[in-house]
Simulated scan of single mutants.
Amino acid sequence: MPRFALLIDYDGTPFNGWQRQSQGQPSVQQAVEDALAKLEPRPHTIAAAGRTDAGVHATGQVAHADLARYWDPFRLSEALNHHLKPAPVAILKAARVTEDFHARFSATERRYTFRLIARRAPLTHDRGRAWHILNPLDADAMRAAAAHLIGQHDFTTFRSTLCQSKSPVKTLDEITIDTRPVPGGTEYRFHLRARSFLHNQVRSIVGTLERVGAGSWQPADVKAALDARDRAACGPVCPPQGLYLTRVIYPEDPFAT
């Protein structure tokens, strides 16, 4: 059966995460699988690079599907987008890949961005797409704190107690924090890059860094929390609506052509 990679963009607001739910709750995976079933009427199971949580968005999720037909990739993406309506899910690209390609296990890097907006006024256009706080943050203090997290560490402090990963040891390759003016305030964007992440690792890190930016923690407190290897030492976990899976890297980009 020919295998296809799908580059997927979605608003996670109405979904209970990426993964198909046994209770019948809406998921992004189910939406895409239902669209595939309209093209080839049979049960479909697709695998994704990252199982995003409820309310988390993606601009660069990757999944793969095994189909019966040798579809033209452009026609496949167009047909899927037709059947995905009106769900806020879009297939940006489809590409034929080799049978040993796996959206999750072939990935060598994942990139996430978290959006935080500080302003007194409520969010309007970005409601549900960014974390809203009232007061500005000290970006330099957050950058100093984030530096303690770069490299290979035991991230027990920054992972969910429900995390199913066999090991809490991960290598965080990069954290950068950008700021930009928005009407009435400032937006902070946290960009994180690693081969893989633990469950809730990004939201735990950003929530802790926000405490540093607000002045409640010092940058050295983040290192102490990391060294504690204790979930209780973590700062608050930030809400999901500001988190985006932006890109998945492979040894060879399946969408390059």
Rank of each mutant, 00 (worst) to 15 (best):
I133R: 09
I133A: 07
L134F: 15
L134E: 14
N135K: 13
P136I: 01
P136F: 04
A144I: 04
A145D: 05
A146G: 06
I150A: 07
Q152W: 03
H153V: 10
F158T: 01
S160M: 08
C163M: 09
C163S: 12
S167R: 14
K170Y: 12
T171K: 11
E174L: 14
T176C: 05
D178P: 07
T179G: 04
R180P: 03
V182G: 04
V182S: 10
V182D: 10
E187Y: 08
E187T: 13
Y188C: 08
R189Y: 00
F190V: 07
R193E: 00
R195M: 12
F197M: 06
F197S: 03
L198W: 02
L198C: 12
N200E: 12
I205W: 01
V206E: 00
V206I: 10
L209N: 05
L209V: 10
E210I: 12
V212S: 07
Q218S: 15
D221T: 11
L226F: 11
D227A: 15
D227P: 04
A228F: 14
A228T: 13
D230A: 08
R231A: 13
R231S: 09
A232W: 10
A233N: 06
G235I: 08
V237W: 00
P240F: 10
Q241I: 00
Q241C: 11
G242M: 10
L245D: 00
L245V: 01
T246V: 15
R247D: 02
R247P: 01
R247G: 02
I249T: 15
E252I: 12
